Simulated scan of single mutants.
Amino acid sequence: MSKTTNTGNAVRHAIQSRRTVKKFKKEAVPTEQIIDLLDTAVWAPNHKLREPWRFVLFSGKGRKKLAEAIEAEMGEDNKFSANVLQVPSIMLVVMEEDPRQAIWDEDFAAASALVQNFMLAAWSEEIGTFWVTKPFLYAPKFRKELGIKAGEKIIGMLYIGYPDVIPSSKERTPAKDKLTLFE
């Protein structure tokens, strides 16, 4: 396979140009478009096609439910519940937890790949994302409020919207500087 195919260049461009967006325009991405992006994201590699994920999407007035769940855990005086009301859409990515460590590791890797797929697909459609992990995602009150069951792990919250500000890129360490090679 040629390294210079248009598809390859587009994929490389999406990977290298994608940015974490923290400031969004008020206009929400249509739910149908988010679902379409998820239909692309689910093509993540996952062992034996276990598809160990599900999604909880908050947009419009539904964001208040997420803010209330955060407040149930952290109290009303916290910056996170106010912040989620400013983001056009927020999605929780939830993984089924298998008690077998090897399966758990494979499923976590697959769910993480799904998140990256989603973020890249969104970026290719000029939609910004921010993968958020906070301690309250583990909190019993927060989880109960949103129907997160025992045996499920929230991989993270994804903020989703049209970018108002796109941050500049930051330098990465060249892979060769972290490579151990046996020839």
Score class of each variant (00 low, 15 high):
75 G>D: 05
24 F>L: 04
118 F>D: 13
76 E>N: 15
24 F>A: 09
45 P>C: 02
64 K>L: 06
162 Y>C: 05
104 W>H: 14
84 V>K: 13
33 Q>K: 13
42 V>C: 12
96 E>P: 00
157 M>I: 11
177 D>E: 13
101 Q>S: 13
89 S>F: 10
6 N>S: 10
147 G>M: 08
101 Q>D: 15
47 H>R: 07
93 V>Q: 01
12 R>V: 02
132 V>R: 10
71 E>G: 04
111 A>K: 00
113 A>V: 02
70 I>E: 07
53 W>H: 03
77 D>W: 14
41 A>D: 11
46 N>G: 02
34 I>H: 03
79 K>P: 04
94 V>C: 12
8 G>K: 09
56 V>A: 13
11 V>P: 00
175 A>C: 02
20 T>I: 09
59 S>R: 11
102 A>Q: 14
64 K>H: 11
102 A>G: 01
133 T>A: 06
126 E>D: 12
82 A>L: 08
173 T>L: 13
16 Q>E: 07
60 G>P: 14
123 W>R: 04
130 F>E: 04
155 I>S: 01
177 D>I: 02
5 T>V: 01
59 S>N: 15
1 M>G: 09
112 S>Q: 02
36 D>A: 15
174 P>L: 05
81 S>V: 10
7 T>M: 08
119 M>T: 09
6 N>D: 10
9 N>T: 02
163 P>V: 05
21 V>L: 05
44 A>H: 06
159 Y>K: 00
129 T>N: 11
73 E>S: 15
81 S>P: 13
155 I>T: 06
5 T>I: 02
112 S>I: 05
101 Q>V: 13
178 K>T: 07
107 D>H: 03
128 G>M: 08
40 T>K: 10
86 Q>H: 11
38 L>G: 03
68 E>A: 12
136 F>W: 12
8 G>S: 05
32 E>W: 03
152 E>G: 07
106 E>G: 00
30 P>M: 12
165 V>Q: 14
69 A>S: 10
88 P>E: 05
95 M>T: 04
64 K>N: 11
7 T>S: 06
142 F>E: 03
171 E>M: 06
93 V>W: 00
15 I>V: 06
54 R>E: 15
113 A>Y: 02
171 E>H: 09
59 S>M: 09
170 K>V: 07
128 G>Q: 06
36 D>S: 14
47 H>S: 09
38 L>H: 03
105 D>K: 11
113 A>D: 04
173 T>H: 04
129 T>W: 13
63 R>V: 01
178 K>I: 04
127 I>K: 05
153 K>I: 00
147 G>Y: 10
92 L>A: 15
74 M>V: 03
177 D>N: 13
153 K>M: 06
106 E>A: 15
99 P>H: 12
120 L>G: 08
103 I>C: 00
19 R>V: 09
152 E>F: 03
80 F>L: 12
78 N>H: 11
178 K>G: 00
102 A>N: 14
111 A>N: 08
27 E>W: 01
124 S>Q: 14
142 F>L: 05
171 E>D: 07
75 G>Q: 10
96 E>D: 15
